[in-house]
Design a protein around this nucleic acid. Structure first.
Lengths: 179, 179
DNA sequence: ACGGACATGTAATTCGTTACATGATTTC
DNA sequence: GAAATCATGTAACGAATTACATGTCCGT
């Protein structure tokens, strides 16, 4: 439901046509979440079906169709923004899942996986930081904050990976080799 | 595809029946990701369709059906575990999306949203930490690491929220009130 | 005249998810 | 004997995603 809510929020800022929603969405999220145009239209269909959005046919042919938010839509946006993102079950994260499951394959394999994931994360971190330095204020605050968000997550994942490795190593020592 | 890969990985550790997959999955992920049993069976159907898993009918009636991984399945697990989780586009995160989009509603509203999300995160953080202290080693390393993962993420989100607020405040001062 | 960005959509697929129905076995 | 857990599934829906088909407009 995140795309749906996001597009609705954009429409709450002002009516737009489909393609513009794609462009605005990607701009606002700093390009970290590419969005297939087709999905915009399918999502708009569902929003219309649910009465949160109405489409205005263009007066002259070959002009763009404009989508406008309804009062119900505005209420929904308000609800969505006010809701705490932490209350919903945490999303299934690929990295966490891989590490947790790899433990079942034995400690050695788990540590190998952690090491590989860590170097990939480190590479991504360096690349991201370099990019942030390269364009000190490129694309306004949204773009900067969006990239900051991923970098912060990557840093958190790295410290978590360290903790995983530590815990596994102390466990291996305690129990004798388990793998 | 994360559930699918996760169940396949569990089957790579040894054959199981459906319900056991649900139990094992939740145990391995420390209960942070509840899994509807029905989804196990639908996912198993798709895994069979793709030839990654075969089902062995029970010899006597009223015994459980056992699912076994195939060679193709094993290869797929290996591929999945080896793939870097950072290469795929970052998943659409609700918190990040809300903050980034709220900026479009003006700086005041954005800061209000950030404050609310922050207090929710802080509450979750305190609760989580208390729980970690309550059971120092409950449920083995997987459970501990799973909970650690969410806590680390929450901490990261908190520092990111601070950075967001800082950047918005300095922007407001620079441009004069924008909202 | 051509390519690329702009613009709108449809069809099909996959995955995740929920709700529901059904029954066996265990435990109190 | 009743409740909880174990166990297997089906039906249906929603959302995300991709691939495809079309066409306009603009710059070079």
């Amino acid at each position: 439901m995140t795309i749906r809510s996001a597009l609705l929020q954009l429409l709450d800022e002002g009516e737009r046509h489909g393609y513009q929603l794609k462009v605005d969405f990607e701009a606002r999220t700093g390009g970290i979440w590419p969005l297939n145009v087709g999905q915009v239209y399918t999502t708009l269909d569902r929003l219309q079906r649910d009465g949160l959005v109405v489409a205005t046919d263009p007066p002259d042919e070959a002009s763009q169709r404009r989508y406008t938010i309804t009062d119900d839509g505005r209420a929904e946006v308000k609800r969505w923004l006010a809701a705490s993102a932490v209350d919903t079950n945490p999303p299934r994260d690929e990295l966490i899942m891989k590490v947790l499951l790899a433990i079942g394959r034995g400690h050695d394999e788990a540590i190998a996986l952690i090491d590989e994931q860590r170097s990939a994360l480190l590479a991504a971190l360096q690349l991201g930081r370099r990019r942030q330095r390269a364009e000190p204020d490129g694309g306004g605050p949204s773009k900067r904050l969006a990239r900051d968000a991923v970098l912060t997550r990557v840093e958190a994942d790295l410290t978590w990976l360290d903790r995983c490795e530590d815990l596994i190593r102390t466990e291996t020592k305690a129990n004798g080799r388990t793998s």
